[in-house]
Simulated assay, not measured.
Amino acid sequence: QFKAKLVTITSQVFSHMDKSNGRKVLREKACQKQKQKFSSSAVYPGCGYVEVMDALVEQVMEPQNVQPQSVNIEAFVWGYNGEDKLQGMSEMLQKMGITVNTYLPAADLQTIQKAPRAALNIVRRKKWALAMEQRFGTPFLHVADMQEWHGIEGISDLYRQIGKMLGCEDAVERVLQAEYERVAARYYELRAEFAKHKFCLIAHGIAYLPDALRVYQQDYGLPITKICIIMNPSYQAETGLDDAMMQRFKDRIELAKAEYGCEAEILLEPSAEALREAAQSCDFVICNGHPRYASLDVPVLYNLFDRSVWNYQGFVDIMEEVWQMLQRPQRTGSSLLLSKLAYDPVFYPMREADKDSKASRELYSRVWRQRK
């Protein structure tokens, strides 16, 4: 009736990352070199979204004359406040003389058809980008872990890599220098304020702990003096990591500490008392919102790890927010009765006393990680 073109999307049935790819990502992460941007060789579906992108590449896009210094930007999975992040990236690219051809798939039919005009794709999930590269020859920059492109240094790395791939390094450097000079004074003032405090970092794994140290110690300049690692007891069995791979992750943590000037004491699976002592030896705790930390009675910082932005001013604005948090400390304690319950440390919000529900949750977790 509407004479619309039908785009068929092939179902991938159960299209999350499977066990094999998940383990491949962790093994490659364990072998990652210092200062190397991580992009796993694993290629996997993505809950329907990647399948839609594949269909657009194969059935909608058409060959085009490539426009120099132009990019397509994947519009999804940029995390907290993603729209503003991409707006900041677009403004920076415009100053560098780089045109945004389209945001994929957030565009009309004609624009998607002309997506191959771009000289470069900036992507978060690379399965569809590989298909587009094969069909149209469009190269891509894979921003796999945003924390590796975090802070002043990470933002610089992103645009320098884009400039290198588009052949406009000089224009990129001029803009980066001008933007840096605009924020440098306040940036160093805030780092000096942060240096007056001590922070305890509570982590729930070791694979991405070096990234966390980069974000907090190097990028924000928050002195980490204690690191408490609390992991799922079944983590090693469920991820398929042998003792050698686990040791690689531990070695990477030590290398990261040395690189970022972090002299923190590491407590692996600390007792409740040791955790409390470590937290209370610091001015602030960096942790998630798990109710078990309510008893620590130490001011906390939340939601910093996913605050990647793509312009210098945006990053300094986040540092201003952190400074405000330090001026008005928020404690973990709560007057709610729910916060007084004993929650399971791994399977929150299960309660420790709820053995039947906990057993069901543990079974679900094991089955989920065995999927293929």
Rank of each mutant, 00 (worst) to 15 (best):
V13K: 14
S15K: 05
D18S: 07
L26C: 07
R27M: 11
Q32C: 13
C47E: 14
G48W: 03
N72M: 06
E74H: 03
E74G: 04
D84K: 10
K85L: 02
M92D: 03
L93E: 02
G97W: 02
T111L: 13
K114R: 15
K114N: 15
L120S: 02
I122Q: 00
Q134V: 01
F136D: 09
M165A: 06
L166M: 05
V183L: 05
R186I: 05
A192K: 09
A203W: 01
I206P: 01
D211H: 10
A212I: 04
N232V: 07
N232C: 08
D242R: 07
D243F: 06
D243H: 10
R248G: 04
E254L: 10
K257D: 09
K257A: 02
A258Y: 04
A264V: 05
S271A: 07
A274G: 09
E277M: 10
A278I: 03
Q280S: 06
V285L: 08
S295G: 12
D297W: 07
V298S: 02
L301V: 00
L304A: 08
R307E: 15
N311A: 07
Q313G: 03
Q313M: 03
G314H: 00
Q330N: 09
T332Y: 01
A342E: 10
V346C: 00
F347Q: 07
E362P: 00
S365R: 11
